[in-house]
Write a protein that binds this DNA or RNA. Structure first.
Length: 318
DNA sequence: ATCCGGAGAT
DNA sequence: ATCTCCGGAT
């Protein structure tokens, strides 16, 4: 007597997924949590539940490999231990710190500064505790909101980052589709365990289900359920290729910030010659080009341009 | 060449 | 809703 699921005609079944979670989901969850708790990388932010400290670690982690984040994270919190301290800081100092520690996108330093100000002025010094509330903070989107809600308050939904996507795609054939990933990630997560769960599944993606997988080396707890492990096909979701950094606009943005930190203020041509050797005031990469760059940086709240004199003067915004 | 989440533009 | 940009070490 075979089962025969209700006929092939029945429901609006044509879009029913060709992926599914394990039948014994409870066992798979337990295996992952036990694997994580037995051994994992000891990052310092995994030992705090202070939402500010967590937020700083998440924002830094968005652009920098974790091993290099540790030093920056400790130095940042040493300098600005609380949201009150950060909110009281000069923006230029926060951006300067970001540059000094090679943390990438300067706007994130600004966002962090702004978020601290929001917490102080709009939330009376206490972070919102749920993902929706956290998303009101500058620079906090769905990923960061769920991470902070989980790690600080154990009150998040499933985190969906590229690690989680890769795991779901390989292990359960979840299609390369944001909505599907979100559904799968939330179905996987045991209710009320967002703190340990999101740590565990991201650890899995970070050390086991890496681009070149290390299933056996690290004793992946999901081998018995993993479709990729069984088929040997470890294809990962497509990651759109990025334009090269060399010669890019953002390379020159970075040089402007770095140069203006060195000189309090700089006339536009002096600045131009310092950020690119082929600068020529009237050339293709001249005043017009540089003013456009500076205008964007000014819009981002990073640079001020004084155009009152005959030659525009740039400085870091304070 | 690769890596990434959020903002802003479209 | 989808696409482009951002920083710079690896």
């Amino acid at each position: 007597m075979s089962d025969v699921e209700s006929a092939e005609d029945a429901d609006a079944g044509e879009d029913d997924p060709e992926w599914s979670l394990p039948d014994d989901l409870a066992a798979a969850r337990k295996a992952l949590i036990e694997w994580y708790e037995a051994d994992h990388r000891a990052f310092p932010w995994r030992e705090t539940d202070d939402p500010y400290e967590i937020l700083v670690s998440e924002v830094m982690s968005q652009q920098t490999q974790l091993d290099r984040v540790v030093d920056a994270w400790e130095a940042f919190l040493d300098r600005w231990p609380t949201t009150a301290d950060l909110a009281a800081a000069d923006r230029a100092d926060v951006v300067g710190f970001w540059t000094d520690h090679s943390l990438g996108y300067n706007n994130r330093a600004k966002y962090l500064h702004e978020a601290a100000t929001q917490v102080e002025t709009e939330y009376d010094g206490a972070f919102p505790t749920d993902p929706d509330g956290l998303q009101d903070l500058m620079g906090v989107g769905p990923y960061t909101a769920n991470a902070v809600a989980s790690f600080a308050f154990n009150a998040g939904d499933a985190v969906v980052d590229t690690n989680v996507k890769r795991v779901a795609y390989r292990a359960f054939d979840v299609p390369d589709d944001d909505a599907a990933f979100e559904t799968a990630a939330n179905d996987l997560m045991p209710a009320g365990e967002s703190r340990v769960w999101n740590n565990a599944i991201m650890e899995l993606g970070g050390v086991a289900c890496t681009q070149t997988p290390r299933c056996d080396e690290v004793g992946c707890p999901w081998r018995e359920w993993c479709h990729a492990y069984q088929s040997g096909d470890f294809t990962a979701p497509d990651v759109p290729t990025q334009p090269s950094f060399e010669g890019s606009r953002r390379q020159f943005r970075g040089r402007v910030i770095g140069t203006l930190r060195e000189y309090d203020e700089l006339a536009i041509d002096a600045l131009g010659h310092r950020i690119r050797v082929d600068y020529a005031p009237d050339g293709e990469y001249g005043r017009e080009w540089l003013l456009g760059l500076l205008e964007d940086l000014a819009d981002d709240g990073l640079v001020d341009v004084d155009r009152s004199g005959d030659e525009p003067i740039a400085r870091l915004q304070r």
